[in-house]
Design a protein around this nucleic acid. Structure first.
Lengths: 216, 216
DNA sequence: TGTACATCAGTGAACGCGCGTTCACTGATGTAC
DNA sequence: TGTACATCAGTGAACGCGCGTTCACTGATGTAC
């Protein structure tokens, strides 16, 4: 180990790297965080890992494979953000209020993540023909073991169990709630509402969640 | 004029092209239609116009400038699609029903356009720091003179005028309605709901509009 | 009406760029004897 | 416990690619006289 070694470009004392896959993935996540999916570039990831460009091919079959791994990590981080909101709910609520608050917490976590981690959010939902094929093999869940979509589903289930939502409205409800929140996120983070709504994202987000709650 | 000349690559009899700007723009639109914003490539547009690559610079300052023009055209086409839905409404409705139906028509037009013209839709809403700076100079309205956002606003105004929506709820309502519809479109056209919801887009879309109507 | 000339739309060739990916290699590591 | 060897992670050099953009040019057009 060298005294001037950095985290990003460590002077290896050994010919072998030891943990290159993880370092490449972390570099990829950092690139996505800063510049979205297009910024996840194989050569730059290897550069940051202090390694020859083709070394990446020992761990990822292609640039696409790295990008999919980064995407899975981004979804996992999103799940984590949602769980954080859920964990912050007061334990004193009635079942009905808790259920309602859980749905809101999931939505709020989603919007907060989109705003704070814009690059990761855009990466998580970047266009890909292989979205469904690839992700199941990679971990997309948060610490609690549920991925973002499942967290929303669980919150809606609570709504039914608490008697707040009639069971016959439950099927497909996640698509409606998700659409509303996802649309606001997209329009604000790199769409036409960036300057109009962006500064008031939280208030508009709460109004949007009012609409969803009432409309579901 | 050559017998084997095509629309795309016309053998010019004259050294000058005559209408290159429009032909490049149309080529750009076609590229966007097929492959989204990233497919709008200067060199390919000139190829299709049957012209040297650098000839484009007589008409567009840069690739970005061409892309912005294509984006404006895409927004204009979206407005057109909405107007078509509005025009198809029966004239016999009461003011209140007409207002409600107008909001639905705007949403339905939006979703239909996203599904039929996916490439253009993605181009219209592609990330760009210059979204608001550039578009105002370029025509984004449909034949009726209103752009997509204004069409939605007008429909919501009708809702208030017809006494269906209390005036105090009107401010900002377009952000909520737009978010819901936009989110569904995004999740379906190149997101994780493509295979799940895609085939039932219309039904889910109508349920979503129910939610918006009730929730606003 | 005919000629000289300025304009400027399109040409042809070239540039540098960074990318993903392939090739034959080298040398550190862990294992079998 | 010590040595031979197979494994395979990382190297170094190179490739072809298509892109956006710049340069000095050419020649068709419309206008002034």
């Amino acid at each position: 180990m060298n005294a001037i070694s950095t985290i990003a470009q460590r002077t290896r004392s050994t010919y072998r790297h030891g943990d290159l896959r993880r370092v490449l993935l972390e570099a990829g996540i950092e690139l996505a965080r800063q510049g979205g999916p297009d910024a996840v570039v194989l050569r730059e990831a290897t550069r940051r890992a202090g390694v020859a460009p083709n070394a990446a091919y020992r761990h990822f079959a292609s640039r696409q494979a790295l990008l999919q791994a980064v995407r899975a990590a981004a979804l996992s981080a999103l799940a984590q953000a949602m769980e954080n909101e859920l964990a912050a709910l007061p334990a004193t609520l009635s079942p009905a209020d808790l259920a309602r608050a859980s749905v809101r917490a999931v939505g709020t976590g989603y919007l907060r993540f989109a705003q704070r981690e814009t690059g990761l959010f855009r990466t998580a939902f970047a266009a890909s023909d292989k979205f469904l094929q690839v992700t199941p093999e990679l971990p997309t869940a948060g610490p609690g073991g549920l991925n973002p979509f499942e967290l929303l589903g669980a919150a809606l289930d609570k709504l039914v169990q608490a008697g707040v939502m009639p069971p016959e409205r439950r099927p497909g409800a996640e698509f409606l709630a998700w659409s509303a929140v996802h649309g606001l996120a997209m329009l604000v983070i790199d769409g036409p509402l960036a300057s109009t709504v962006g500064p008031h994202m939280q208030q508009v987000g709460q109004r949007l969640l009012d609409m969803v709650e009432k409309g579901l």
